[in-house]
């Protein structure tokens, strides 16, 4: 089997919404470099924004002294972003698809991002070990159907 060249990039940033714009730019540019079209690159950047926003809000409770690690690795076929934190974990995998009508009645604002991540990416996987290491791995394939 031909060995695929793997590109890896890592950044660590303070857990603050102030950094979301920078993170989106970073991920978007890497997605384009990996070979995605503009639209797919936008979708990856949005999914990563949603994942980081969840960490900032729920795991770190807006404590900007906490850090988030972002690892991106990609081959000619697969683009994978791993977001790691050491905060209080929550399990978005258990959250059902949001019922917008119910949201409207309850004036709820959260939970929409998880649905977006699932829709925009090919795979969204979570591992939780609260206070030690929580990870969300977002995957998008460059050639649909290759898993």
């Amino acid at each position: 089997m031909k060995r695929l060249k793997k590109n890896k990039v890592k950044i660590r940033f303070p857990s603050s919404t102030d950094n979301l714009e920078m993170i989106r730019d970073f991920v978007r540019k890497l997605s384009l470099k990996a070979g995605f079209e503009e639209e797919a690159a936008d979708h990856i950047a949005l999914a990563v924004d949603e994942a980081c926003t969840n960490v900032i809000k729920h795991a770190h409770k807006y404590n900007a002294r906490r850090m988030i690690d972002l690892n991106v690795q990609y081959t000619a076929e697969k683009f994978e972003v791993t977001i790691t934190d050491k905060g209080k974990g929550f399990d978005p995998a258990r959250m059902p698809k949001p019922d917008l009508d119910k949201y409207m009645h309850e004036a709820r604002k959260g939970g929409l991002g998880i649905h977006l991540m699932r829709t925009l990416m090919d795979e969204v996987n979570y591992t939780f070990n609260p206070g030690v290491k929580n990870q969300v791995v977002l995957v998008k394939y460059l050639k649909p159907g290759i898993a």
Partner: peptide, 17 residues
């Protein structure tokens, strides 16, 4: 130029009222 679910959530937070 850009909207994430945090922006969409604002609409949801006010619409019923």
């Amino acid at each position: 130029d850009y909207i994430s679910s945090a922006g969409l959530g604002v609409f949801m937070g006010f619409i019923e009222e």
